[in-house]
Nucleic acid binder design. Structure first.
Lengths: 185, 185
DNA sequence: GTCTATATTTCGATAGAC
DNA sequence: GTCTATCGAAATATAGAC
């Protein structure tokens, strides 16, 4: 056997995810990924079709991570507590992996997007909770309200926008309480 | 006189803004800007220090445009109407210039940001309105709530996230009504 | 102030030997 | 499957003539 495999698609996606976290999508170059996994850049093309294929895999892995996190913190018997726990988990993920968060939530037009099915899976338990509070007829509207507020808040927090003084965590809790109340809680 | 001026900083920023709208920040290359204004790329450096200087000017012009738009639609005697008018104006701007909107609201980590003063100026009349509704003690929290929701909704709308069926304009109106009610309206 | 010419770097991707 | 070698494209920016 001439050349044993020294890397694989999984390890490549992992390295690309780290580079995304460290320097954004632009930092995910084939050269940088190759350095990270310890091979020469042409070898990557035996595991990945092209750069966009790799980036799509990175986004897919990130949205899966979010989905698992949201599923893990849900509270089955308490809709209010479940909503709070899930948006808190969103915020934790965003703080830990801001660039990945931006890709998942589609903050940058023209960047790779997760599939609609993957996004739906992420919001499964949030939809259940908002349905309990707002009624099935408005479950979707209410989920959109919650996610929109949380996403907007998190995005601006990461960008240091709305830096107008005041305690940011206090603003988060104040807003969250109002949002939950607004959808029928 | 050896070479009369065929362009100027204002025209260059304008061309760069058009390129931003058409293809995002990555499309704003010195070459593309030069083609657009009708000169060779080295000539641009007589009007602009470097590319980041140009991009910063583009962002500044965009936030000024937003500020003017928000000031124009405000309703002085009616806080609820003023809030609705201003978030509607935000949404119109985002639909007209999605890439510019993303830069202004800081959706992409690592991109050029408007100055805090410019952002504050944009939110002046919104703060006045939320102060009326929520009380001065919570004017800032309430403004953050409104802007966060609007920004999150708009961002996801532009990215086709939360595309889970239902009328998107109806969701906007439903959410907006709840938000205004939530802050004391 | 604009031009030609160019330095320099970096990128994605391919060819072909082993 | 990995490697060396390389192509071709595109980018920012500078030097110096006019």
């Amino acid at each position: 056997m001439p050349a044993p495999a020294r890397t694989g698609r999984e390890q490549i996606v992992e390295a690309a995810s780290m580079l995304l976290d460290e320097g954004g999508a632009d930092a995910v170059t084939m050269q940088a990924v190759a350095d990270r996994v310890g091979v020469r850049s042409p070898s990557l093309y035996k595991h990945v079709r092209h750069r966009s294929d790799l980036l799509a895999a990175v986004v897919h892995a990130a949205v899966d991570e979010v989905t698992d996190g949201l599923a893990a913190v849900r509270v089955d018997g308490d809709a209010r507590a479940s909503i709070v726990a899930q948006v808190d988990a969103m915020r934790r993920f965003a703080r830990a992996r801001p660039h990945a968060y931006a890709l998942v939530m589609g903050a940058a037009p023209g960047q790779p997007r997760p599939t609609p099915e993957a996004m739906r899976a992420s919001l499964r338990f949030l939809l259940a909770a908002t349905g309990e509070l707002a009624g099935e007829a408005h479950a979707l509207d209410a989920a959109r309200l919650v996610v929109a507020w949380a996403n907007g808040f998190i995005t601006m927090e990461l960008a240091d926008a709305l830096q107008m003084g005041g305690d940011i965590d206090e603003a988060w809790r104040w807003g969250l309480a109002r949002i939950v109340a607004a959808i029928g809680g």
